[in-house]
């Protein structure tokens, strides 16, 4: 893991109360923008539903109540939709839920209601500058189009992709991917297991080497034969010489065999410490 923390990446390390450090993937603008659009659509949808319900009320003769209801719901959706959902849905709005992202504090803890409301109210500022739609033609001056330019600039200037509202509230948005299980790569090439048997029994594989082997073998499925040879020869050729194997040994096969020896093969214990130590 020491290697991964120094990488230039969009991961943020969190230390939990259990004193465990783990990495979060921070969500960037291209994940959050669709979530916002989905929420916008949901807001309009809700307002439409309320309007239909209101027209029923109107038909029953309570027209004024219906109009008042629409106005109030409109106000609440406009300002408190995000704050409400993020407090009750554990940092997610429906749009964020669909996109698999979640709001957390910068320390990886859940946000409270104050932060949820405030970061949504402050979105008004992230929308700046507002452009009048009059540039497009003869429209009333009330239609202002938010550009989100300021929010985008602020987001790209810090490593947690925080917009202004996030900076003020000390929150960030992380993407919460469903982990996929890969396990060990097995049975790709039956000859690898055979070659592993031929390797010297006292050969030790260093942790660095094991990590390198895993990185290679986990990805080799996506490469062509020529590409595999090209990548594998850097490690394969010196090892072939060192182990005294025939020169025509496939480097790719050799790395697979070493991987098999390191992670899967139970034939020899070669200095491997036991688990749980």
């Amino acid at each position: 893991m020491a290697a991964s923390t120094s990488q230039i990446d969009t991961t943020i390390q969190i230390v939990t109360p259990e004193n465990i450090a783990f990495d979060y993937q921070v969500a960037g603008p291209f994940r959050r923008w669709p979530a916002y659009l989905l929420d916008l659509a949901a807001r309009f949808g809700l307002l439409l539903v309320i309007m239909v319900a209101a027209s029923l009320l109107d038909w029953l003769g309570a027209g004024a109540l219906a109009v008042a209801g629409i106005l109030l719901v409109w106000f609440l959706l406009e300002w408190f939709y995000g704050g409400f959902f993020e407090s009750y849905w554990n940092g997610q709005t429906p749009g964020k839920w669909l996109l698999g992202i979640r709001v957390l504090t910068i320390h990886g803890q859940p946000i409270n209601a104050l932060q949820a409301v405030m970061r949504n109210v402050l979105r008004t500022v992230d929308m700046y500058p507002l452009i009048s739609l009059q540039v497009l033609g003869d429209l009333p001056p009330v239609y202002l189009f938010p550009t989100f330019f300021l929010g985008l600039v602020v987001m790209s200037s810090n490593r947690r992709f925080q917009r202004l509202g996030d900076l003020v509230c000390g929150t960030m948005v992380v993407s919460e991917e469903r982990p996929w299980w890969t396990g060990m790569v097995q049975g790709e090439d039956p000859r690898a297991a055979l070659l592993a048997e031929l390797l010297p029994a006292d050969m030790s594989i260093s942790p660095d080497m094991a990590r390198t082997l895993a990185s290679y073998v986990e990805r080799r499925g996506g490469f062509t034969a020529a590409r595999r040879r090209e990548i594998a020869r850097h490690l394969g050729i010196p090892l072939t010489r060192q182990l005294g194997l025939p020169d025509d040994t496939s480097e790719d096969l050799l790395l697979c065999a070493l991987y098999h020896r390191a992670f899967i093969g139970a034939a020899h214990e070669n200095g491997w410490r036991r688990s749980g130590g």
Partner: peptide, 28 residues
């Protein structure tokens, strides 16, 4: 334990998701 990188990544994501369910947002 020298777990392979992909397994480590899997664990990071698993622990992250579990952490978010264990520590939940406080409501109003």
């Amino acid at each position: 334990w020298q777990l392979p990188p992909r397994t480590v990544q899997y664990l990071h994501r698993l622990v992250g998701r579990a952490h978010n369910q264990l520590y939940r947002s406080r409501t109003f």
